[in-house]
């Protein structure tokens, strides 16, 4: 799995590539938590390269979402392939997260 952070003025984009599972989700957590653990931080997570995600990946994102909400920022997910969307739907978290179709949509209002 590979992670890449693109820092902009009002937001950061975290690009994830590969499988997010019990093995790799601690790496995602290590990267994502500092990005959202500050006031008004906006984080956009690009899933275009994500080939698989399990419940440990979802749990990491739930933790990030809770921190973002606490700090008055926004966490948005975009470019999710259907099998990844299915994991959020099965977890009944698809309405809890702000899931956007593409980069244009994810940047609206940021």
């Amino acid at each position: 799995m590979e992670l890449e952070v693109d820092r902009r003025v009002n937001y950061s984009i975290l690009k994830i590539k590969g499988d997010v599972d019990l093995y790799s989700s601690p790496q995602v957590r290590k990267q994502i938590i500092p990005l959202v653990d500050k006031k008004n931080a906006n984080l956009l997570v690009d899933f275009a390269g994500v080939t698989y995600m399990d419940s440990s990946g979802v749990a990491t994102l739930v933790e990030a979402l809770q921190l973002t909400n606490k700090n008055g920022g926004k966490l948005r997910l975009f470019n999710l392939a259907q099998p990844i969307k299915d994991v959020f739907e099965l977890s009944r978290l698809d309405k809890v997260f702000d899931i956007c179709e593409n980069e244009q949509q994810v940047l609206e209002g940021i």
Binding site: V62, L90, S91
Partner: peptide, 18 residues
């Protein structure tokens, strides 16, 4: 509990769902 949005505890739910 599905209303309980928190990290962890999801795996069993996913297994039983599918």
């Amino acid at each position: 509990e599905l209303d309980d949005v928190r990290p962890g505890g999801l795996g069993v739910h996913l297994i039983k769902s599918v």
